[in-house]
Each structure stands twice: as C-alpha cells, then as structure tokens.
Design a protein around this nucleic acid. Structure first.
Ligand code: SF4
Ligand code: SF4
Lengths: 134, 134
DNA sequence: TGGCAAAAGACTTGTCAAGTCCTGTTACCT
DNA sequence: AGGTAACAGGACTTGACAAGTCTTTTGCCA
C-alpha cells in the first residue's frame, strides 16, 4: 500500500534533472525525457502541472523550454510530490471532517493524522539541492 | 496520495470490534458487519484474509464465528493493515533491489526507505488494545 | 443427516493509472 | 508576414485494480 505512481516518480526524476543543470540554463522537454528515461508525451503532462503550480517556468517557441522557478534549495520534495499527486492523505477522513461519519468517535482517526504529519514533515525537509548528484 | 483503501479501513473497523468484545466471545460475521457498518459479503473476504494470516481464528458451523487469535495488546495496527493491504511500499524500488535499474545511483531511493520505516514504526507501535473505546 | 456458518471462486461495475495522439497557441527568426 | 520551434490542452485507449455481489462448496454440531 501507499505506493507512489509512475507519474510521481517521473516528476521527481524530471525536476531533479532541471535542478542539476546550471542556473538559468533552459532545458528542452525532449532533452529531459531522454535523460531521465520517461516517455516524452507523458512527461509533457507532468511539466504542464509543474508549470501551473508555479514550481517551474516554461517558455514557448524557438529557444523555449523549462527552467526551475526558484533555487533548488528552496523547493522541497513535498512540493514536487503534492504538485502532481495531490495532497498526502493516508485516509480520506484526514482531508476534512465529515468525510466519514465516524470520525468524531473513531480511535483510528488520529493515527492517520499522525502518519500524514510525519510523512509531510519528512518530505518537506528534503530540498532538490540535496537530491542533485554531486 | 498514499490512500488506504476501503478494504483496509473496513478491516480495521472489524478487528477493533472483535478486540473490544469480552475475551473468548465468538462473534458472528453478520453481527460484526452490522456493528461496524460494512457490507457483510465484503467483510467476509477481509476476514478470510485475516484467518489465513492467522491474526483471527475462525469456526464453522453452528456456534461458529470469529475470535481474535491473541490478546489485543499483542496485535498491532501494522499487522492488520499489512494483512489486507500488503506491505507498506512508498515506492516500488523499496521492495527489492533491481525493481528500478536506477536504484543504485538514485538519490531519492533512500528517502522512500526512510518514509517506509517511519510509517511502519508508527503503526507498529499501536496495538488494538489502545484502539478499543474505553 | 439437516441446517448453520465460514471458505472459495466466478462475476460485475466503475474508476483510475499510464500512456498516445491530435490540434491549438505562442514566440522567435528571417 | 510566414514558417518553424516549442509548450498547452483536449480527447482517446488500454489494462489493472477497487469495491462489491452471487453462487457453490466445505466443515461442524446437534
Ligand atoms: S472509520 Fe475512522 S479511520 Fe476510518 S475513515 Fe472513518 S474516521 Fe477515518
Ligand atoms: S528512480 Fe529512484 S526513487 Fe524512483 S523508483 Fe527508481 S530508484 Fe526508486
């Protein structure tokens, strides 16, 4: 259980590639896809999501491509994962009260909250900087 | 992401009901299903899995039903979840080396191991005893 | 041996993951 | 202005898996 999807994994691979490029060097989608071994059309979808959430910048036309929106040490793994996979929810009752009618009395409910916090804390402390191979 | 399935949630509900019964009191499937509000036929499948992994005992025929295999303080939430949902794997590369050909050089790989350990540790420290409403 | 209760297996329905493909939109370049 | 280089967006496909249901079999007890 709790498996990351391919999309999530590909997303991380792709953005790490960006992070390990020289600053301000624009990378082509085709270049990234080849480098991290992901189908280009699929990676396109992923980077569109990145672009919409604002963690990468995109440029069209000749000389276009992708660029990290900020310095690698400011972008966390949590941001990357949540950008493409949505919020981390070990159980649906964690999202908002009322999702499960038992949540008021349920003794397990707090456990999932705790799991969520732990995982978010962990991923939130890892930046792209730390993930680029040196 | 990382969502528990209905099956997992139902499983927990069901076994907590068992754990909160008086020791050695055999419970009928129909009784459990009604109490925790889960379709009986579906719960049947879940308890079959419990039975196979040995965390509950089952008896057929008249006077039959289900019984916790051990004292509630000896069964952890981790055991329950893994019994029906399979092992906790934040990413497929955590299972065994070779699942992803990048795992030797990948800088993210250790992160998922860490997530797995954290979650397992957390769930493994919670017993059914602590989850029964007092 | 009849009936009670769990076990097992086949089947259904819908959703979602993992892509592909095609068409649009924007920006540069001559 | 026209052509080409790139990303953006939408529709579509395929297969797996979640969430059940239904039916039959197996075991147990009185
Ligand atoms: S039963 Fe408890 S753990 Fe399960 S969804 Fe409801 S509140 Fe959450
Ligand atoms: S790329 Fe890294 S994190 Fe992703 S599956 Fe492979 S080893 Fe694991």
């Amino acid at each position: 259980m709790m498996e990351l999807t391919r999309k999530g994994d590909y997303a991380i691979r792709g953005i790490i590639y960006l992070a390990s490029q020289p600053p301000n060097k624009i990378s082509l989608l085709s270049e990234i896809a080849t480098a991290v071994d992901v189908p280009q059309t699929f990676l396109a979808k992923i980077f569109q999501q990145f672009s919409k959430t604002g963690i990468v910048k995109s440029f069209r036309g000749t000389g276009g491509g992708f660029l990290l929106a900020g310095p690698p040490e400011d972008i966390t793994l949590l941001q990357v994962v949540e950008a493409v996979e949505g919020p981390i929810l070990p159980n649906r009752c964690v999202l908002k009260p009322g999702e499960c009618e038992r949540d008021l009395t349920c003794t397990v409910h707090p456990v999932w909250r705790q799991v969520q916090q732990q995982v978010r804390g962990l991923l939130g402390n890892i930046t792209l900087k730390e993930l680029t191979t040196k």
